Simulated assay, not measured.
Amino acid sequence: MTDLRTLFDAGVAAVGGDTSVATSLTADPVAPPDQIIAVGKAATAMARAAHEVFPETPLLIVTKYHHAEGAPAAADVMEAAHPVLDENSIAAGTRVLETVQNMSADRHLMLLVSGGASALVEAPADGLSLDDLSSRAQQMLASGADIHAMNAARMQASRIKGGKLLGAFRGARVTTLAISDVEGDSLQVIGSGIGAAPVEPAFTFEARIVASNAIARAAVCRAATDAGLIVGHDEETLYADVNAVAPRIAAALKNASPGVHLFGGEPTVVLPPDPGLGGRNQALALLLAREIAGAQGLQILVAGTDGTDGPTDAAGAIVDGETWEASGQEALDRADAGRWLDARGALLKTGPTGTNVMDLVIARKS
């Protein structure tokens, strides 16, 4: 029987950083760049594929701690914090900005951008310190602000976000390849616009979205169909607070026909003053467990495609009609869903996946 983890893995494999970049460069080749800069949670995988095509090009990778495994030996690798930036984020942002600024007039820059870049690379606007930026980021994360609100604030506080990085480029050409972790797949939003061009670029600019939530969901659907399963819902609608998302999805599943049902996107969660351990996917999974308590023949996987959920090493969780217990409400109130689910063997741990196209909810109803 095809299980939910197998379906999730099929979706993630289709949007892997190496697969996505290799496919794009094979289908539509570009001239060799003079410098490659990869930033984000999927930076290592994306850079590995680009290095295969352009092995002589200098390569700078900036990624999350413990996400650099498999980086080309020739690469210059920097690691920093996510989701709240740290001193290494500032060092990486300074290095990236200097690299771009120092490229001469005839040069070609390739930028590989994936989710997480907003925290991993930063050059603060004048007058702002690391403490200022960290405090703002923590406040916005706790408030449940969506990606658009967070990115707007990040762009104002940065010298490299919102097209400002490439505003410092004096070369001839930029090629940006991006993995989308935002609704609408806008390059102005991915990584807070670090790979976007200024309004009137003085260079040739080409941008491609090489992977997205839609591509991952299509792969899940293919895997389910190939296994002889019927696919019902296939929606990118996870754009609300988890407390609003959970009852809506649960109601749809209770009324659905047998088969596989799929939802994508990125919900938000509001944190209490002293939160426990967990992320938005673990919170949503526990809320769904409460909503489907007692239901027979229904299993739900909720996970981040990057393999991490909030400040944890779990991607999310898998729940069913028997998961919920009354003590789960206290865990929800404390934002401690991770510990509660872990104690019941429900967490899903994949390790870093080499991609980041938001989240997937995959349900199977028999």
Rank of each mutant, 00 (worst) to 15 (best):
L111N: 01
V270K: 14
A246V: 05
P267E: 06
R154H: 02
S114F: 08
K161M: 06
T225M: 00
G16L: 10
A289I: 12
G127S: 07
I318S: 10
P311Q: 13
G184C: 04
A363V: 11
G16S: 06
T94E: 15
I230G: 04
L4H: 03
L287S: 05
A244H: 06
Q188I: 01
Q101E: 13
S135N: 09
M140V: 04
G115M: 12
A142W: 02
I190V: 13
A283M: 07
M1L: 09
D306I: 03
M358Q: 06
G171F: 11
A343S: 13
Q35K: 10
T63V: 14
S158K: 07
L287F: 06
G276L: 15
P311S: 12
L25E: 07
G191C: 10
L348N: 10
G259K: 11
M1N: 08
G265N: 09
S24M: 14
D131F: 01
P273I: 04
A285W: 07
L120K: 05
Q329L: 11
A137T: 10
T6N: 06
G195F: 01
Q329I: 11
T57A: 15
L271E: 08
I61V: 12
N151C: 15
G171S: 06
A346G: 00
A207E: 14
V269R: 05
V242C: 15
S366R: 02
D336P: 08
S24D: 10
W340K: 01
V12I: 15
V357A: 03
R344K: 14
L287G: 00
A251I: 05
K365F: 06
S366D: 11
L229N: 01
F205L: 01
G17V: 15
D234H: 08
T350Y: 08
H66M: 12
R248D: 15
Q299P: 00
D9A: 14
P33Y: 02
A47W: 10
K161P: 05
D131N: 07
D359K: 04
R344N: 08
A27Y: 02
L109I: 12
L165E: 05
T323Y: 01
G171I: 09
A172Q: 05
N151A: 12
A224H: 02
V245C: 03
V121M: 07
L109M: 07
A227T: 00
L341Q: 06
S135Q: 13
G163P: 00
A71P: 02
P32L: 06
L25G: 03
Q138A: 09
P258K: 12
L130V: 03
A214S: 09
E98G: 11
A207S: 15
R170P: 01
A314W: 06
L332C: 03
V242A: 13
A223K: 04
Q35A: 10
P58A: 12
T204M: 02
P33M: 13
N88T: 09
N213F: 03
A68G: 09
T350I: 14
A137G: 02
V84H: 03
L288N: 09
A315E: 04
